[in-house]
Design a protein around this nucleic acid. Sequence first.
DNA 1: AGATACGATACGGAGAGCATATCATATGAC
DNA 2: GTCATATGATATGCTCTCCGTATCGTATCT
Lengths: 160, 160
Amino acid sequence: MTSINSGWSRRRAAAGIKASLRALRNQMSLLNHQVGARLELRDVDLDCLEIVQEHGPLTPSALARRAGLHPATVTGILDRLQRGGWVARERDPDGPDRRAVLVRALKDRNAELLGLYAGMSTALDGLLAGYDDDQLALLADFLRRTTEAGRTATEELGRD
Amino acid sequence: MTSINSGWSRRRAAAGIKASLRALRNQMSLLNHQVGARLELRDVDLDCLEIVQEHGPLTPSALARRAGLHPATVTGILDRLQRGGWVARERDPDGPDRRAVLVRALKDRNAELLGLYAGMSTALDGLLAGYDDDQLALLADFLRRTTEAGRTATEELGRD
DNA sequence: AGATACGATACGGAGAGCATATCATATGAC
DNA sequence: GTCATATGATATGCTCTCCGTATCGTATCT
């Protein structure tokens, strides 16, 4: 009895978490859209900027692969990001591949960006204050592993 | 001493969670992008479809407000979603406002959509199996409250 | 009733995204 | 080495998206 009920309630709980995850992604993307509008950047520009900030410096083609975009599309995105002072294109004449360009995230406008996320950041601070250290660690670990699962799933869909 | 160290480590933990949240949003959007590509839908189409599925049926203008888009843009998005059989536009001649259109999510292609998310869903099932009921409840509550915080932050940026 | 506001969409222009071409550089076979 | 082929980044041109505005129908207010 207990095990049956338990299995059923766990399934419900898991489904609920998946739905919440979808809703969260959607809401955060809506927030990103507002932020991008203030900065005159497209959603995809912010997506790419985030990749460069987290995984950069990298080449435009590596960025294109990671973002699932055509290399020519990335050229246009980088033009906008560079024009706005968000990234720099670096060519290294002494590098191993002189065709390659390295895209590096600049910090010049970080404060501005942080400012636009301030509302969310403050709300999160308040929310997180209600958790003890163990719970925070649990959340961090869950987010990290879910992201990793997302990366795998994305790559699987991207192949072919 | 302990309180100072504790405060400092909590701050680090909170910052880490915020960064993980950003990375997670980004990765899930990349996954969505791949899903959308398979369905010949733009990212924004999937965003809107999700809103309709979760908060619908609603009018195009309500959807535009929620998504932070121009009403004319939503017309085009709904054209694509309708053409693909994802939503239906309903006009109710007996409704309180005969100008209004109601956008309703259809279930016809739900299985197809679920299939594209299957990789992520399975990975999540495995991940969630490692948590007990209390931990699942903690995660669900965190996701729900974070989404709510995101909604507030988005609305604040959207006003003006 | 008339004036005004609002919902949805048509239309046109600016620009995004991408397939392809181009040019420079790398890599491999011989 | 030399030639052929592959690869990185970007230019070019085409299609489609997004959005400002106009339009049409309906609702609301006085």
